[in-house]
Design a binder for these strands. Structure first.
Lengths: 199, 199
DNA sequence: CGAAAATTTGACATGACTCAACTGGAGTGG
DNA sequence: CCACTCCAGTTGAGTCATGTCAAATTTTCG
């Protein structure tokens, strides 16, 4: 729990009492590699704070194609926020790409916590704001940049994730096919070889 | 102000005192068609609640191309949230496409209101959550649907906006060129004519 | 009315996709 | 320890959705 407290305390202050309340109204859970935390179509019952491991959130379209919406690693949040808040069927699957430990907030538990720890409203407002701003930037990046640029930026921004997840999921996150990502990578390799030879 | 009160009261309750506080720590302002509420590069000093009129938020890339991030009409919020909250240069321009009346919250004013009206934290958390969920859906739609599908969905979802703004901005919002949108529209017209003739 | 802005149209170019074949590990079991 | 399979990744040929550029047309509005 210390990890969660420290994370929240980056945004708002927590008393000992607050920490105790958080502890008693959440639960820790471990998922194995491949397991689903949320399944598209079910109501998402938990907001999840990732302690360690790695998850992906993806949408399965009517043709059976997967579209990766996001990854989550240590100190990220995951789940289907729309489903969680409105108690409607989830739009996405959330799957663990590794053994993954999370701290889970139920809807009921979180509403109770909002009442008892008012600054938690502020905390969640702040992190959702950040997520929203990042999501808008992604919309624009997808319009204004080529797949190659987006891939390079992804590498620069999330070097850890690049190691953890298979290429085809990164391709999906970038909105391209695995074949096309493979071609981009092959180009980059060739360019790199040339640079080395020129030295 | 009644319009703003009613809007907020869809999410949280407001006392008379709260309303008075809102009134005294915000200001109403009218912009003319073409004017900028926010300019990319400046710090965004206001969150704006649109009473009437219409705005567009757009990003100007390094090649001088415009990319429309969103439109805002009656009862929507606009501004550059990232810039407003972190007091950093705005990523976007916000321009009025019509004479537009807004209620403006300054950063200072809003922080004060958060203290005096704690349920305002909740209110903004809820609306930012909605905006975030919508933004994630847009990312996925851009990946999994053709330009034609996205245009049809846009028409269905925002019929008012279609009337108000020029085609080339809608094209930009959809992430395509004005020429290509024009071709899509021409296709749709042809199909429609055929259907009519078959009757 | 006339000029500027928005939209349309057409020829051509290209980024990214599809499909199918191939390569190369990482188990797994005999 | 080899053979087999399975899955991820690569490569190549052909195709398609969408972009670019330039010209023609329509609309808007002073």
């Amino acid at each position: 729990m210390e990890q969660l407290y420290r994370y929240i305390e980056q945004y708002v202050e927590l008393s000992l009492e607050d920490k105790w309340l958080l502890l008693s109204h959440t639960s820790k859970r471990t998922y194995l590699k491949g397991q689903y935390i949320v399944q598209q179509g079910d109501v998402c019952n938990y907001e999840n704070f990732v302690l360690n491991g790695c998850t992906r959130t993806f949408y399965l379209d009517k043709y059976g194609n997967e579209h990766v919406v996001m990854f989550a690693i240590r100190n990220w949040w995951t789940g289907d926020m729309g489903s969680f808040t409105t108690r409607t069927p989830a739009s996405y699957h959330v799957q663990c790409l590794d053994d993954t430990e999370v701290i889970q907030f139920t809807h009921e538990g979180l509403e109770l916590l909002y009442q008892k720890i008012p600054q938690l409203e502020r905390f969640f407002r702040l992190i959702v704001q950040k997520a929203f701003v990042a999501s808008e930037k992604r919309v624009i990046a997808n319009f204004s940049k080529t797949a190659r640029e987006r891939y390079l930026e992804f590498l620069a921004k999330y070097p850890e994730i690049e190691q953890l997840v298979p290429q085809y999921m990164i391709a999906s996150y970038l909105g391209i096919t695995k074949e096309f990502l493979s071609k981009i990578r092959s180009e980059l390799r060739n360019e790199h070889v040339h640079h080395v030879n020129l030295d």
